[in-house]
Design a protein around this nucleic acid. Structure first.
Length: 421
DNA sequence: CCGATTGTTCAGCCAGCTTG
DNA sequence: CAAGCTGGCTGAACAATCGG
């Protein structure tokens, strides 16, 4: 059976999330998108956990079901600790095999932070201590460093991260099997660092809203004989290429931290340009927010385009809402017209991922404007340029062959280089 | 010309850290 | 010790534009 899984998302008990991130909203969103396995998110939060225990039915060992959508118990925690005299804040995705073990996890973690305060609790623990604690509860618990390249709160992040996984997880690194690439990087970027070859690269949305332009933006596609926790655990642990078919990605340029820059100063720069400026903002003279591409370049020991031999392939997409709204030049994702077209396509092809990955051009053209059909194919085939994201600003796809003329470039040369891409 | 739709901006949520 | 900043999303308020 084919499983399309988004394992990292949040409940309404996390800060800055939509109230619709409840089980009904999530299952509705998953069906529209074409996902059949979701992480529950936030199992550390007592109210959310109570809801999960009450509403989820056990399906198979470690897998639960609600309204025909499967769930696996997951949460994200933030560890804050000092190392090398600096504050380190690192996010970790945690998967657990059953509610009994979740109860044990929560009992221990509650000693290190207030689990009620946020669905994504802050723990006064070193990353290595967190892993040690979890593994001592159960070897079946999976700890995955979350969105490893984003500047804030991540393993390799420019603001509070490390250059080597070992520096973060120390002797507990032996229990780390996978890394979450995050929106601003794709597997190809990670393949440039030989140290990462042994890790399974997983992709999740970290969604805060169940809307199809957020949930399932990134996902993992598995082919399983049967669905249970052990299967998922083993695939991720062993990087089983026969069962891990591919990951679904957005173009890393779309991510909010791909390039370097300052949102407020309207400065965004390719790492090469930033380095020429000593990573100092030409407007406010303060250090730039260094993005994902820059960090990958710093740590890479291989050229662009290198593919490790056991790499799991990936496909790049964009949320359908964005393709439609950018094609029609409507900025509002939820405009009536965009929703109408989206619904028409989803009704015909069953779900959004079918539209994005499978739908044939002739069929698309029968249903919608030729330009929209063409752009769906363009995105699928990667024939598309972006205005890259930076310092928390999403990247923008250039679906109408626009030339980029924007005040946000401080360097005319960066602008002309960009238009040549 | 007026109502409907779309575009744009911004407060609010909140803890916890840094800065002055 | 207060002020400012951070994250990501909602949804209100208001402005602009579309279309019948």
């Amino acid at each position: 059976m084919k499983i399309i899984a988004d394992l990292h998302l949040h409940s309404p008990y996390s800060k800055a999330t939509s109230k619709e991130m409840n089980l009904d909203g999530l299952t509705k969103g998953a069906k529209i998108k074409g996902l059949n396995l979701l992480g529950t998110g936030d199992f550390t939060h007592p109210f959310w956990l109570k809801e999960l225990k009450g509403k989820l039915q056990e399906f198979e060992d470690g897998i639960f079901v609600y309204k025909d959508v499967y769930f696996i118990l997951s949460t994200e925690v933030s560890t804050i600790f000092q190392k090398y005299g600096k504050k380190k804040e690192i996010h970790h995705l945690i998967l657990a095999p059953n509610f009994e073990i979740v109860d044990q996890i929560n009992e221990v973690l509650a000693k290190y932070g207030d689990l009620k305060k946020d669905g994504r609790p802050i723990l006064n623990l070193k990353a290595s201590e967190l892993v040690e604690i979890l593994i001592s509860i159960s070897q079946k618990i999976l700890v995955i460093p979350a969105h490893v390249w984003t500047p804030w709160k991540s393993l390799f992040g420019s603001k509070s991260g490390f250059d080597k996984i070992e520096d973060c997880y120390e002797d507990q690194v032996k229990h780390i099997y996978a890394l979450e690439t995050g929106l601003s990087s794709d597997p190809a970027m990670n393949w440039r660092i030989s140290d990462l070859d042994k890790y399974t690269l997983v992709s999740n949305s970290d969604s805060h809203s169940p809307h199809p332009w957020r949930l399932g933006r990134e996902a993992n596609v598995f082919e399983l004989n049967k669905l249970n926790y052990k299967e998922i655990f083993e695939i991720i642990k062993k990087k089983d290429r026969d069962k891990f078919l591919f990951t679904i990605e957005v173009d890393p340029n779309y991510g909010k931290y791909h390039w370097d820059g300052h949102r407020k100063c309207k400065v965004f720069l390719h790492p090469k340009e930033a380095i020429k400026l000593n990573n100092i903002c030409p407007v406010c003279k303060k250090p730039l927010t260094i993005g994902v591409l820059h960090r990958v370049e710093e740590l890479a020991d291989r050229p662009e385009g290198f593919v490790p031999k056991d790499a799991i392939p990936f496909k790049s997409i964009l949320p359908l809402y964005e393709i439609i709204s950018y094609t029609l030049k409507i900025n509002q994702l939820y405009s009536k017209k965009v929703i109408e077209i989206q619904n028409k396509l989803i009704e015909y092809f069953g779900n959004e991922l079918n539209v994005l990955l499978e739908a044939k051009k002739e069929e698309l053209e029968k249903l919608v404007d030729k330009k929209i059909a063409e752009n769906i194919l363009k995105v699928r085939e990667g024939r598309i340029r972006f205005l890259p994201g930076y310092d928390g600003e999403y990247g923008k796809p250039l679906l109408n062959d626009e030339l980029v003329i924007r005040k946000t470039f401080t360097s005319q040369k960066a602008l002309s280089d960009f238009n040549k891409l």
